[in-house]
Design a binder for these strands. Structure first.
Lengths: 160, 160
DNA sequence: ACTAGTATGTTATATTATAACAATTATGTT
DNA sequence: AACATAATTGTTATAATATAACATACTAGT
């Protein structure tokens, strides 16, 4: 895996990016009148801290190693479910993994570009993709409740 | 689940649809110079026979019950891998399940409409969806190798 | 018939996810 | 502050999905 330059797709400082994401999350939860507990915040931070989608058991491992918190799977899955419900993270079905939502204040579907070399996953916002899917569904008289778009390939950094 | 009218999305006779799919599969394998063995053909038939995406363990269960074949998971997963490689089936990541490919003679990405009421899954071919994804990827200088589009919602039959 | 390659069988185990119930913690009310 | 209630987290067990590793059987070409 090419992990030499893992932040190149997000040129700004990653730490500040995490901090801002966590701040936004606080606001979203306050507005939704739900509790962003210490555990949930920590899980969100870990998901954001990773440059690639993070699996539930990866999160468990970090909690055990860094926090000495011997959590069992349900603890993590419940936190993840909460974060998904609040639109703070997305689940990448093809990877069984989770990634921070780039714009939690505006609920939306996530379309992803997943690099199969370095694992970096980019959330893209494209009205054209969205519209074309909606039109196709309409043709079939199909009522959309959720869209999943996961595009696998090679990111700019990993191209030779 | 609404399973009263499972074939309404595919109005033609389902048996003949399966037969034609299996015939096409034979041709594809002959052309690709690979062997469509009895097991592989049987797994393909089971996938096609189902009106909704079929899990690997569902296939195992049918093999045990109908064929008295006490297969273990690797047997089925290998057959599925083969069928995927030859483009004869698609994998639906969000369901961990498999579905027959509607047009195996022409390799393509599968875009799916998945009904969360009855489970029926429709493969749609849309140049517009395809193009819009390609354009979005191009903007990010991302080189696509595989696209996954899985749209969950309510199919026409299940709408009240 | 022999052999090399392909396919399948078999056993064990890895990985991802949830059910069910117990204990703890936070919140609003008296 | 003490209480009751609801929400959250802990804990144990297990379900569901998938693969590794090696043994056996089959197939096609010589």
């Amino acid at each position: 895996m090419n992990t030499k330059n893992p932040t190149a797709l997000t040129p700004h400082n990653h730490d500040s990016c995490i901090a801002s994401a966590l701040e936004k999350a606080q606001q979203v939860c306050q507005r939704n009148n739900v509790r962003l507990t210490e555990l949930r915040l920590r899980v969100l931070e870990l998901v954001w801290r990773s440059h690639k989608p993070l699996g539930a058991y990866d999160i468990l491992a970090v909690l055990a190693k860094e926090d000495g918190r011997n959590a069992a799977p349900p603890t993590v899955y419940r936190a993840l479910d909460f974060l998904l419900e609040q639109g703070l993270i997305h689940r990448i079905a093809s990877l069984n993994a989770f990634i921070g939502c780039s714009d939690p204040e505006c609920p939306h579907q996530g379309y992803f570009l997943i690099c199969n070399q370095c694992g970096i996953t980019l959330e893209l916002h494209s009205d054209k993709v969205s519209k074309s899917i909606q039109r196709a569904a309409l043709e079939y008289d199909f009522q959309i409740s959720h869209e999943m778009v996961e595009v696998v390939g090679v990111c700019p950094n990993c191209k030779v």
